[in-house]
Design a binder for these strands. Sequence first.
DNA 1: GTCTATAAGATGATAGAC
DNA 2: GTCTATCATCTTATAGAC
Lengths: 190, 190
Amino acid sequence: MKHGATAERILDAAQRLVQSRGFNGFSYADIAEELGLRKASLHYHFESKDVLGRALMARYRERFRAALAAIEGATSDARERLRRYAKLYLSVLRNEDRMCLCGMLAADFTTLARPVRDEVRRFFDDNEAWLARVLETGRKAGRLAFKGPAAAEAVMLVSGLEGAMLVARSTRGARRFEETARRLLASVGA
Amino acid sequence: MKHGATAERILDAAQRLVQSRGFNGFSYADIAEELGLRKASLHYHFESKDVLGRALMARYRERFRAALAAIEGATSDARERLRRYAKLYLSVLRNEDRMCLCGMLAADFTTLARPVRDEVRRFFDDNEAWLARVLETGRKAGRLAFKGPAAAEAVMLVSGLEGAMLVARSTRGARRFEETARRLLASVGA
DNA sequence: GTCTATAAGATGATAGAC
DNA sequence: GTCTATCATCTTATAGAC
């Protein structure tokens, strides 16, 4: 929990493992081997696996938040913002067929410690809130078209993208993901 | 692998555990305790966890296949078929907040034995093929409206429904799932 | 078919030397 | 900060009695 360079490397390894194998699909031994350290050393940086999980999610949320801010800074067009948002997911999937960290933890949800669960919920809340704003603004500007509350549409987009990642991993296809993402965006007029 | 009544009970317990905790989130001890048996006894019915996993998926695929056949027998209207298809997912989620067995195994995919992976792939293939037929038939009958190949639209529906289940479990809401499913179906005119 | 007993290894975690 | 040593517990799995 000191958060030096080693802690960061531990988080990197752990995140990769969670994204490809799930929270219960790896151990401290896996991380230690990858970094050339001993298991005991990891406990100095993250006293327990729960603490590690929470740190993982906190960092992921912060990075995602920054990525969303970058999108807002890059373009003010709603369609383009949605396209870039979908690309965020695609780049994760293309990186060694990884699942979204948060989608993976959503699957492992019932086995997670409270603080980790809370982080997972917050991730989805943040994402949906951001998307809802983009959707509503885009609709008012006449750039997007959909019925009903923007919040509900945001939930559908997040669900669709997470599900597309999930399925794509077992049917081997970033290709399939792209096509599905395209269709999802098309359904809101983007 | 003898498949008597006990084997069936083991599968029931194992399926429930996988659907709520993931394939790496439970052990033979959990099943044994639930059934009032000893761990060793389970190995008589399913020699290894991999074999158990495969049996689990085989049964699930068969049941799903039967459920799809039942839908076809109940109505010939494409919209109604899609509605019932979505209800299949909803009933799983409503049952103790479970995830689709196959969606959960898609998350655990990289940790699964080959035969289990193959079953997972087949599940998605079967589902998408069935949906594509319903979609195409419905479009020709003027009951559904969507652009592009029915197969691509089928992938989107499966992805959307699986993702909606995944997210709903962490944000506690069969309610949310229903709303999302409704919107997904609406996007194909149902 | 189910049990006891047992194995061999993994797992998350701690104490204390360096 | 990282190490060795050690821990209690869990995990999948097998052998053999009943």
